[in-house]
């Protein structure tokens, strides 16, 4: 089907997130306003105003009532999805790079960038049921052993017992979410060779996929950090997503944004590439963006996905029926 082009952002996209029901799509971009869209027709529902810097990441609660966003303005904010009002603002001394609600939405993990003297850190915040009771104190702060390298993403492990993080030092780490102890590091031999740009977990928290500038994406077991699969892309991978319905993964990326204007438009390979999750073979690609793809998300029903590019567009693709009959 023809993709729906969603033009609302004025700067490159950074992150996309569907709610659990799959009817809302939240988008973050380097302009300062996260936007909410209707996930079926791509109409804009509203924006969340209040950030004063690029917004890097967001997450929405299971009941779709609360949104959390992390921004370069050194804050992470909680929003009322219904009204678009800001509920609370966590202040940090450095940009907030990624945010993730825990199972049950009572905790949130927020990562911050290295900035001035500060090193990259992972903060765990308790989210109060009533925003009026919200406090800004962290429950736990984890310092990366390689603090000058940015942590690009941290997410909760199964049953909120662990936190999984990955970033510029190309190492994946599993932390104990209670004590803050470092439990595991990914094997340097089989692990990524360059910055890990993105990390997306499966719906049941059993496994997750990482994308990296080393031009591969890798699939890991979330409990043991065992490498399961490697997908070779040929271009740097900025965004990854897994189909909840079929055994497909989709990778997005492309050449460095700074090199785009100097080469042929086809040189960039700004495709969303589909791979068979098990066989690791490329199935096909969806073209359209004229800049690298920075964000990808599957609708929880697995029948549509959206991609956000450096070009400032969100493209919403509903799959044709052919897609569900792909055999390789």
């Amino acid at each position: 089907m023809r993709p729906i082009l969603m033009k609302g952002h004025e700067r490159p996209l950074t992150f996309l997130r569907y709610n659990r029901d799959g009817d809302m799509l939240f988008s973050c971009a380097k302009d300062h306003t996260p936007t909410l869209w209707y996930a079926d027709n791509g109409e804009r529902h509203g924006t969340f105003r209040g950030h004063n810097g690029a917004v890097w990441c967001c997450d929405v609660s299971r009941d779709s009532l609360t949104l959390i966003t992390g921004s370069a303005d050194q804050t992470a904010k909680l929003w009322d999805v219904k009204t678009g009002q800001q509920l609370f603002s966590f202040k940090f001394g450095s940009p907030a790079r990624s945010v993730d609600f825990s199972l049950g939405d009572k905790l949130a993990v927020i990562t911050t960038d290295p900035f001035m003297e500060r090193t990259s850190a992972i903060h765990v915040k308790r989210i109060a049921e009533d925003p009026a009771d919200q406090v800004s104190e962290s429950v736990l702060v984890l310092e990366s052993p390689n603090g000058r390298k940015r942590i690009n993403r941290a997410v909760w492990g199964p049953l909120n017992q662990t936190i999984v993080s990955g970033g510029e030092d190309a190492v994946l780490r599993i932390w104990d979410a209670e004590t803050g102890k470092l439990l595991k590091e990914s094997d340097a031999e089989v692990g990524h060779k360059n910055t890990i740009t993105s990390l997306t977990k499966a719906a049941d928290d059993s496994h997750f996929i990482t994308g990296s500038l080393d031009k591969t994406a890798k699939l890991w077991d979330m409990r043991t950090l065992t490498l399961l699969k490697t997908y070779v892309s040929g271009v740097p991978v900025n965004a990854v997503s897994m189909s909840p319905l079929l055994d497909h993964v989709v990778l997005g990326g492309g050449q460095d944004a700074s090199a785009v204007t100097t080469t042929d438009h086809r040189a960039g390979k700004f495709e969303a590439k589909f791979y068979d999750k098990i066989l690791q073979e490329e199935i096909g690609g969806v073209k359209g963006h004229f800049g690298p793809i920075n964000a990808l998300a599957f609708n929880p029903d697995g029948k549509s996905f959206s991609s956000g590019g450096e070009d400032g567009y969100v493209r919403l693709h509903h799959f044709d029926s052919d897609y569900f009959n792909i055999r390789i």
């Binding site: 299971r62 825990s102 199972l103 049950g104 009572k106 199964p158 049953l159 909120n160 049941d204 059993s206 409990r223």
Partner: peptide, 13 residues
């Protein structure tokens, strides 16, 4: 594993 953790998950929610 998912099955085992079912109750724990339910509690968390």
């Amino acid at each position: 594993l998912q099955e085992e953790e079912k109750l724990a998950r339910q509690n968390l929610r």
